[in-house]
Design a binder for these strands. Structure first.
Lengths: 343, 343
DNA sequence: CATCGAAGTTGAAACCTTTCAATTCCGAGT
DNA sequence: ACTCGGAATTGAAAGGTTTCAACTTCGATG
């Protein structure tokens, strides 16, 4: 025996009105302006709704009202703690504005990102926040041009076609490298990749600036390119470093993110390399795990929640304020020194 | 100068039809059954759509068609890698069925969960997957009764009012404890909490069964209750254990999840307790980080992706198959032994 | 040359809610 | 007794899409 009647259409306002013996408009008033309805009528209508299991049809509501009550964040990778923290910042702001947040995960695929964006646009969400696979994707411009507010999160673009919220990666790279230079390191590995990523390039530039400012030769920085920014790749990078002859081997490593740094750390520990005495390590992002690692990790902290909250505020401004102008917000990262660089 | 015209209504099929010099029905055909339309007409219509920046109004589509093309997962905590892995399993299945998945994060709040459920129901999503704050919440029954397929993920309920997919926690607890008993431990800490959580209770029961089966006294198990299942709480539990007199101090700990276990591990390492020689540790979930920890963690693995995929299949069956009957799927966990218990 | 069928196109109806001008009702004020 | 004003209620219209029966065109068949 089938469990529920798939054919049964759920009750509409009309059904409720009939059951309660009132007009359709009154039912709508109970839903939207309960104070305009006399207590007895309201009671009657609410009882009818309950009896019939009435559920407001959001599509019809939205069609008529023209607006939805949701915000969307298209994440690059839901498995990366960095992005879930950004999402929770967005969520906070959405909640204050009395909007629901839905999350979509593009899992690093441009195709999935595209189909999420298309659907969200068709759903007429209030606004879309997105950390794009490729910030130059023309789809972003199209969506924005057609009228859905779009804010780019943790990425930037050369032109200023929309609002964006990011953290100064060049500065972050500089801070990390300066910290290592201050501690006397002269051979520093730069671990990360793939090298076409904006983050890789910007943080590298910052590191190079620090090297130059210290009057050190350019080749003080030793590039170790990885295929992805994961723990596994970090371990792999560790074994590549270990393979170098001792006199050329870096005494410090700056990793483009914490996952790489943690992998590198793990490799060091299991192969008996002392951290930080023989190898100092700096990560990036300061995810919760950085502080909780076996050797607490020095890392460049990004204001993740703030990033999310700000992005949400920008998108809301664009959605509601006719005077809105696009802004590119750039936050300042901060170095958090822990045992992985402090003897 | 405001950037875009907030007042401009976006183009509708009617506008497109007028611009292309065809009827409304033809535009709809181009959208939904392109093969029914002659190539020239199709071309003309598509060009008009492009020119006008036409975006199909999903609310209207859904209102008329009656069905949405999305599935939703209401997660308990998006910051926990366990749940994001479950979500990715769901995503896979959704993608094969050509549905979009949206994620909602209740962040451990019953209230947020409720409002997400309500909105999703109003949106007439194809189905709702949920890891509820409280599996006994009557809202779940109501939603299901009113006709939206609901599947409970990683939780179960006494009655069988809907489909659920979970992992045998009692067995998992037994496996973990047996492993420690096999390795000769006779004083074992059970670390977790709060104690009203089903997982805490079930895994504890399994551990007790193992103790009993081995003919050991009940008090071989030493309960260490925590306020939450986080890394920080794990460290805290570590210092509580360290405070015990050596002869009563457990030589092994079974933690209700990996985050606790990693916190405990971190405490051990920084306070010079050797793992596993002085303290063996077993975690639960086998999140990616368990294997990547400074001392790779023995853990009870749950088939996370499979959990998600199966849940998605169940909800789809319920949504499309009139013969659907509710099922409670229970997967079997598996112990993965690593250095944290192997000398 | 008449007929038929296939292919392409049309336009009205339906989906469900919200809005708003119009209407009814009722008690208070004169 | 009458008018007035406010509160409560009504019902038609609008919003954009899809569906479908009906219609047109056109080439092929008898």
């Amino acid at each position: 025996m089938p469990h529920r009647d798939l054919g049964a259409r759920s009750a509409s306002v009309k059904d409720v009105a009939a059951a309660a013996g009132v007009s359709l408009g009154t039912v709508s008033n109970v839903l939207n302006r309960p104070d305009r309805v006399s207590p007895e009528t309201r009671e009657k209508v609410q009882r009818a709704m309950l009896d019939l299991g009435f559920v407001r049809n959001e599509s019809a509501r939205q069609l008529r009202a023209g607006s939805s009550r949701t915000l969307a964040y298209v994440m690059l990778d839901a498995a990366n703690p960095f992005f879930t923290d950004v999402a929770s910042g967005i969520d906070e702001a959405a909640e204050s504005a009395d909007l629901s947040l839905v999350l979509c995960n593009s899992r690093n695929s441009a195709e999935r990102e595209l189909s999420h964006l298309a659907l969200l646009e068709q759903q007429r969400v209030q606004g879309i926040l997105v950390t794009p696979v490729d910030p130059e994707s023309p789809m972003l411009d199209e969506v924005a041009r057609r009228g859905t507010p779009v804010v780019v999160v943790d990425r930037t673009r050369a032109d200023q076609s929309f609002c964006s919220v990011a953290v100064d990666d060049v500065l972050g790279g500089r801070l990390a490298a300066e910290h290592l230079i201050d501690r006397g390191h002269t051979r520093i590995a730069y671990v990360g990749g793939p090298s076409h990523l904006g983050q890789f390039r910007d943080r590298l530039q910052g590191a190079r600036e620090a090297i130059a400012a210290a009057g050190m030769p350019e080749d003080s920085l030793n590039l170790v390119e990885t295929a992805a920014m994961t723990v596994v790749e970090g371990r792999e990078a560790g074994s590549r470093l270990a393979g170098l002859p001792a006199r050329r081997r870096p005494t410090a490593a700056f990793c483009v993110n914490d996952l790489l740094a943690l992998g590198l750390l793990q490799h060091a520990i299991t192969s008996g390399v002392r951290v930080p005495e023989e190898l100092a390590i700096v990560g990036y992002d300061d995810i919760e795990f950085a502080a909780a690692a076996a050797v607490p990790l020095t890392s460049v902290r990004q204001p993740r929640q703030l990033l999310g909250r700000t992005a949400a505020e920008l998108v809301l401004d664009e959605a509601t304020n006719a005077e809105h102008t696009h802004r590119q917000v750039l936050f300042t990262p901060e170095l958090v020194a822990r045992s992985s660089t402090l003897a």
